[in-house]
Design a protein around this nucleic acid. Structure first.
Lengths: 257, 257
DNA sequence: GAGTGGTCTAGACCACTGT
DNA sequence: CAGTGGTCTAGACCACTCC
């Protein structure tokens, strides 16, 4: 650990953890740090790079380096999945209310044709008409959204149902449940596949995060009671602002276990 | 996008995606790349750094830079959570079998005392006697494990039950379900909180991943049928080798919905 | 305009890996 | 030993932000 840049990184890391450098505080300028530690500028930049990849600091061109605020996380809870947009469980909703941080949600919709991937996921033919809904959930105090949801429905299935784009929507794109219900379709179960990965360049820009801050990606597939796919969605969420919470009841019917 | 290093990164990224640089292939040496693109070494290293943070390449000191293999992911499925170690659902087990990739699991156990965090999570007093089980799941072809699970049980609750450390354990540390059952305790539900984040230095070393490759962290809490915490666990999984899969049935009893 | 971080150069030396 | 990446230096110039 004789590395100079590791020492500098460790020093700053400690100051951040101790609170000497509180959240959102500006670090000394890079040249100042170089003087302090009697090293060259590139060495300081290397150290800061490490901290950036660890998600501890954020660089702002022309302004300085800042301690990343890692406050309470928004929760994506599965007890709302497959239910109406109205949150019935306190898990997520109380938290959001308590923080005076009701999310602002923007929704857009357009008609598209299924490409290979969507066709395979929804078990339909390529070029099938679909409706794509894009949801962006944002905390009022933030610039960038914390999640981007692309939800896909079969055009033929919901075209007859009224689909008002309410701005009071859930940020997770759960309104489709209501629409399907109105169309007489009952949901059976929802399968979600979660992965953690670095953001693509585009995602980093859209979510306002630096590369190195992980994102959670959820591929959601909703089935009706007959096992037919009725919806699929891609959720990409900023890993440092969102946690996913799953509650699994242990129903042990003698049969299945 | 006139940046030289972005161009180099984009060039290599394209070659990896196109398959010109297949998985596990070695990239040209840094000095060779510098000559090819007529830039200085630091510029090439900057580009490679970007690709490393994106998880596309892996650097090996003294050997070279290599394309990261991103093969089929191990699945952590909640249909096994709260059930016995024997997987009953095909979701995960079939995949693992098909890949001829049955995980090797190492287990260790020691008695510890609850610290502040564990005491709060298990709703017991600090210094309460606990049993800590550490599971590491590893693919035979890999050096490092893909997941590290630390599971905590109340010593008083399971001390009387036989706890054979079977090497055929599930890599996710689910044996506690059997032990609790033997002790006459019935599980009620399991709550899991997932987050995505960069690995700590220690985790990166233990999981054999480079910083910048995200990890999935799951904080699991198991409750019995009375709502008492009977187990809690921390699962840290290499984000590029593991996906978490949750299947949520939409039981809409008229009451609760 | 002054201060900040971003890009890039050219070169030295060290540490790890293989032969 | 030769080849590889890892660390570090000193300095030039550009781009962004704020006054």
């Amino acid at each position: 650990m004789a590395n100079r840049y590791e020492q500098i990184a460790a020093d700053l890391r400690k100051q951040i953890e101790d609170g000497a450098l509180p959240a959102a505080a500006r670090l000394p300028s890079e040249s100042a740090l170089a003087l302090q530690h009697r090293v060259g500028l590139p060495t300081v930049r290397h150290a800061l790079n490490v901290l950036q990849v660890e998600g501890l600091i954020e660089k702002r061109h022309g302004k300085g380096n800042f301690v990343r605020a890692v406050d309470q996380k928004i929760e994506y809870a599965n007890d709302r999945v497959g239910r109406a947009a109205q949150p019935s469980s306190p898990t997520g909703s109380l938290l959001e209310r308590a923080l005076d941080d009701l999310p602002e949600v923007t929704v857009s919709c357009c008609e598209i044709r299924a490409n290979d991937e969507l066709a395979s996921r929804m078990n339909v033919r390529v070029e099938t008409r679909l409706l794509e809904f894009v949801y962006r959930g944002r905390r009022p105090k933030d610039e960038a959204p914390y999640s981007i949801v692309r939800s896909y429905l079969l055009y033929a299935m919901v075209a007859s149902a009224p689909t008002p784009l309410t701005s009071t929507a859930s940020p997770w794109g759960n309104e489709y449940v209501d629409w399907l219900t109105e169309a007489g379709i009952a949901l059976g179960h929802v399968v979600e596949r979660l992965t953690a990965r670095p953001p693509s360049v585009r995602e980093a820009a859209e979510l306002g995060i630096s590369p190195g801050v992980a994102v959670i990606e959820i591929q959601r597939t909703s089935y009706d009671t007959h096992g037919t796919v009725v919806e699929t969605a891609d959720l990409v969420m900023s890993g440092d602002r969102v946690a996913a919470v799953y509650s699994t009841p242990c129903v042990r019917t003698r049969q299945s276990c």
